[in-house]
Design a binder for these strands. Structure first.
Lengths: 103, 103
DNA sequence: ATGCAATTTAGGCATTTAGCTAAATACCTA
DNA sequence: TAGGTATTTAGCTAAATGCCTAAATTGCAT
C-alpha cells in the first residue's frame, strides 16, 4: 500500500494513469505528453510498475503499458475502509485485515 | 494533492490518521503508539500538517492533533473521480456493485 | 550483418527523507 | 522564580528522489 501511495504522490505519475484509462500506450507516446526526458519517464514507469499499478508488454520494438486498475482500487478501498470513508457501514470492520503486503 | 498522497505513503502516518479517527490526541500519546523517537514523530506530524490532513492546537502544555477528514476526502474523491472510480452520491447501494468488495 | 528507432541503464548532481541524539523552547505548577 | 513535562529544532548520517546527458540495449527491417 505504501508503494501505491508513493507512486501516486507525483503528478506526472498520476497523469500517466489517467492517460492509460483510455487503453494501452507505448512508453514513447506517453512520454510525449510530458516535458521531461524519456529516461526520467522511464523511471516514473518503473515506480508505477513496482507499485503494481501498470504492466508493460513488449510489442514490435515498443513497450505498451497498460493500467492495472484492480491494484489501484484495492489500495484505495482498503485505506478508505480503514478510515471509515466511501463505502457502506458494514464495510469498515476493524480487525479484518484484507491480508496483504507490508502496511 | 501530491502532498496528501506523499503524506499517505508512510505507514506510520496512515496509522496516525486512523488513531485520530477516534478524536483528538496529544502528540505524546500518539507517539507512544510507535517505535520511533519523538523527534521523528514530530517530523511525521509536520508532514501531515503540511498536507492539511491534521491540525495541531496548543492545550495546557501539550499539542492536541485532530484529523482533518475533509482534506482527505477531497483528495481521494477528486483523484478517484479522475480515474473513473469516483461514483457520485448514490454509491453505497448494496447489490449494484460489480464484485469489488473485500469480503 | 548493419542500421534505425525505442527504451532502459549508468553516472552525476542537488534535494529530500527518515531516522537518531542532544539541545532548545514552550507551558504549567509549585 | 525554578522545576518539570511536552514538543520542536538542530545537526548529523545514510539512503532515496527527480532530473539530466550519454551510452547501452533491444527489436525490426534492410
Amino acid at each position: 500500500m505504501s508503494k501505491v501511495f508513493d507512486a501516486l504522490s507525483h503528478p506526472i505519475r498520476r497523469e500517466v494513469l489517467e492517460l492509460l484509462k483510455g487503453g494501452g500506450m507505448t512508453a514513447g507516446d506517453i512520454a510525449d505528453h510530458f516535458p521531461v526526458s524519456k529516461p526520467t519517464m522511464s523511471g516514473h514507469f518503473a515506480k508505477l510498475k513496482e507499485a503494481g499499478l501498470i504492466h508493460g508488454e513488449n510489442r514490435r520494438g515498443s513497450v505498451v503499458y497498460t493500467l492495472n486498475m484492480s491494484t489501484l482500487e484495492e489500495a484505495l478501498h482498503t485505506f478508505m475502509g480503514r478510515m471509515g470513508l466511501g463505502r457502506a457501514e458494514g464495510e469498515a470492520r476493524p480487525g479484518t485485515k484484507p491480508q496483504g503486503e507490508t502496511q
